[in-house]
Each structure stands twice: as structure tokens, then as C-alpha cells.
Amino acid sequence: MNLDIIESILFATIIAGTPLIIVALGQLIAEKSGVLNLGAEGMMAMGAVAGFAVTFHTGNPWLGVLAGMVAGALMSLLFAVVVLTLMGNQVATGLALSIFGGGLSAFVGKPYESEVLEAVPTLRIPLLADIPVIGPSLFNQQPLVYLAWALFGGIVWFLYKSRSGLLLRAVGESPSSAHSIGYPVIRIRYMATLFGGAMAGVGGSFLSVFYTPLWVEGMVAGRGWIAIALVVFATWRPFRVLVGAYLFGGVMVAQFFVQGSGLDINIPSQFLSSLPYLATIIVLVIISRDQNTVRLNAPVSLGQSYRPDA
């Protein structure tokens, strides 16, 4: 394997991992507040179609990302009303949101199925991009790749260094205690859920505006679910989400490895495509094998409805 190939594999891995980081970090925040939204797949699909449509009509990919963000947030608002205000079952409602988003995105996106967007040029960071191998693959990237890093930094600061982050975690660990000392549990959960939705929408728009760049029904292809699994795999820690997302990114571009290896092996493409899903199952097994790992790290109230008494 020569350096050029390593460079292109690394480049592809970073790109493939980026939507997972954005979506999973958004879910992480929602889950830290105690809300389990299994609708990420549907929110991403809506983000993808909204992002594509707006970029297609305005020619501005950033307006597309903004539209994706709004679409994802609106979807999560629907979820939040059902589970937070009306106290619906979070698992079932999340599933419903995924099915609904899948259908609605296919419906809305029909006119755009044969359209293609102009590729967005990469943003080169001076000096850093000159480092051999990692320079071009890490620092001559899509702008959203850098934004994902910024998001990561912001979330680490928010969760562990800010007062609001502490409050968010308190709500997830014990909503009744947070309520009894006067914090608005439901309002905080609303905001965390909306943030998770907005990020899922951004992740979806990254797929349709920057990554492919086109819109096809079902193009999210399980990434929303993988992002949810990633949060479990990362035991609700942002740094592990980052690392895990790139590992999964690497698995998603496995065909590059095979091509790059120069070996004359004939692996069916379907097998390579199934690797991310199999990898998800394997990491879930590894992480849940010891019951305490998940139990000690998961937000205590995750997935449970809460209704303040007074």
C-alpha cells in the first residue's frame, strides 16, 4: 500500500465518520437529559431532503445545512411534544418518528431524485495541510469536518465545564431532584431534544449536500441507528463518540481498503456494505457483555417519562 492510497483511505474515513459524529453528539446531549429519541434515522432523512432541496434552489450549501437543521429540529419537536408533554412511550414514539421521517422524506424528495448538486470545494487549512499524508486527509477537508471538531470541543466544555451542562446531567440522572430544587426539567429536556434533532438534521444534510451530493430515498441507510448505537458504545462520553465515529467511518469505506490492498480477492460488494451493520452488532455485544458498563454509565432516567408533581 503506498502513501497515496493511505491518504485517500484516511480522507474517505474522516468524511464518512463526520455525519456520525454530528448526529451522535446531538443524541448524546438529548440522552444526557434522559430522553432517548430513536427517531434519528427519520430526522436525518428529513434533514437530508430539506438540505438538498434548499441547496438546489438557492445554490448555497450553507442555507441547505441551515434548512436541514431546522427540519431536524421540527421533527424532534414533534417527538418532544408526544413524549415530554403527552408522556408517550419514548421507544415507540422514536420508532414512529423514524418511520414517519422515512416516508415523509421520500414523499417530499420525489421531484429531486434525478438532480445532482455541484460538489462543494474542500477548505484547505494553511500550513497544517502541508504535513505529509495526514495534512491533505485531515486539513484539506469539507468545512463541516472542522465544524464537527468544533462541535465536539463545544460539547465537552458544555457538559463538563459549564453550569448548564451540570444541570443537564442532573436532569438526566434524577429529574425529581432537579425539579425539587426548582429547575424546569421538562423545559431543559425540550431544549436537549431539539438540539439532538437539529444535529441529526445537520448530519443528514451533510450526506445529501456535501457527501454524495444527491438525494435518493433511503440514502441515510441506517446511519441514524448506528449513531444511536455509537452513543451506547461510547458509554455516553464525547471523546469516545469521536473515536468510535471514525472507526465506523473506516468500516464504511472498507471497499477502499480492499481495492487499495492490491490483493486479487473477490469479495461480494454486498458483504463489504454489510460490514458497518455487523460492526455495530459486535461493538454492542462487547460493550453490553458486562452489565455494569452500561448500567453505570447510562443516564439513570434515560427513556423514562417524567411529570412534575406540582
Partner: peptide
């Protein structure tokens, strides 16, 4: 001349509304 995925939209709405209206069982 509508995409057939409109079925999924109706199906998804049905489930979302059901989960929402279930609140009235206990409240």
C-alpha cells in the same frame, strides 16, 4: 401523480397521533 410513499406518511402520522392521544388514558 403523488409518490406512493404517501402511504408511509399516513402510517407514521397514525402512530404518532396514537401515542400522543394515549395520554388521555391516564390523564
Amino acid at each position: 401523480n403523488l409518490p406512493s410513499s404517501i402511504s408511509n406518511v399516513f402510517q407514521g402520522m397514525l402512530l404518532m397521533f396514537l401515542l400522543g392521544s394515549d395520554v388521555f388514558i391516564n390523564y
